[in-house]
């Protein structure tokens, strides 16, 4: 199973291959932005993600005003209803809960875990990577040693162990922490790599000789240059986390019913395959489309910042 860190690393290597960014900051950004805007697949992907995100945020509203169900309401006499059943546009599940409503709330959970995990990974990973890369020396050694340890634990083993720890109280937040506990390492390495390649450039030396403090150098010069790589990693990361959450649900960890997540809806539905194939198909499609969109967007960003590919 490929981790988000490894996907990001692959993306970075692809970028390196095509010639890493060596242009100065300003026009680079506007050029890249132009390229991004011209990439129709990428824009479509971004639209899909934004759409899903909005659905996720508006779940309570949609549930009250559009579907008129909430996600735990049961209508057990009408279980396994197919789509277009009266009152249930996309059908019902094994105890008669409305599938559409659960997909909407599931978006909140799946995307919530995705974004929160990535956010945590990036914040922690970037801080560590920046510090290690910039300050070097002992700090670098220690921090990277820590990163090595975290990356050495087989990912799924760690998920299982930490998952057991948080079992009784697995919420969106704790699950994100669990998955992020592994993800930040990859980001740290990525950022550190970027910092190392930029640190000794002329413009850096120049700025430093002008008396700029550490913080200023890090925030105004290093970070912006690391940003493209981060955006790509984040985008690919969200997709990876959504898949990881589904895998954890399959193993028995992750978010438990009645709270719906696309992952737990998909795994639960496997045994009801013969009663309603929709229960398998619909959450699967949601996962697939969202992860695909995240990946396409990530690729589009990378393409925009490293044009030699297309």
């Amino acid at each position: 199973m490929i981790s988000q860190g490894q996907i990001a690393e692959a993306a970075r290597l692809e970028g390196v291959l095509e010639g890493a960014a060596t242009r100065p900051a300003q026009s680079f950004w506007s050029e890249s932005w132009e390229r991004l805007r011209a990439n129709r697949a990428g824009l479509l992907a971004a639209a899909v993600i934004v759409f899903m995100g909005l659905v996720a945020l508006a779940a309570p509203l949609l549930s009250a005003l559009v579907t008129h169900h909430n996600f735990h309401e049961q209508d057990i006499q009408n279980n396994f209803a197919p789509p277009l059943f009266p009152g249930h546009v996309l059908g019902t599940d094994e105890i008669g809960r409305d599938t559409l409503t659960r997909l909407i709330w599931g978006a909140q959970v799946s995307l919530g875990v995705g974004f929160l995990t990535v956010a945590i990974s990036i914040v922690v990973g970037t801080s560590v990577g920046l510090s290690a890369g910039y300050f070097g020396g002992l700090a670098d050694d220690l921090l990277m040693r820590l990163v090595d340890v975290v990356l050495a634990i087989p990912r799924l083993f760690l998920f299982i162990l930490v998952g057991i720890l948080f079992f009784r109280s697995t919420t969106l937040v704790t699950l994100s922490l669990v998955i992020a506990s592994v993800g930040w390492g990859g980001t740290a390495r990525l950022v550190r790599g970027e910092v190392l390649s930029i640190r000794n450039r002329d413009f850096m030396l120049a700025t430093r000789s002008l008396g700029a403090g550490h913080l200023r150098l890090i925030l105004r010069h290093l970070l912006p240059n690391a940003l493209p790589v981060l955006i790509v990693a984040a985008s690919l990361g969200v997709g990876g986390v959504i898949l990881a959450e589904a895998a954890l649900d399959y193993l028995g960890f992750g978010i438990h019913p009645p709270t719906p997540s696309w992952g737990n809806m998909l795994s639960n539905a496997q045994q009801y395959f013969t009663h309603s194939i929709w229960l398998v198909f619909l959450p699967g499609v949601c996962i697939f489309v969202t992860v695909l969109a995240a990946n396409l967007f990530g690729n589009a960003v990378r393409d925009a910042f490293d044009p030699r590919l297309r």
């Binding site: 399959y250 996962i287 992860v291």
Partner: peptide, 13 residues
């Protein structure tokens, strides 16, 4: 691109 978006366990099943 599509291949990366498929959950592993689901593909197996």
């Amino acid at each position: 691109v599509a291949g990366v978006a498929v959950p592993e366990f689901w593909l197996g099943l």
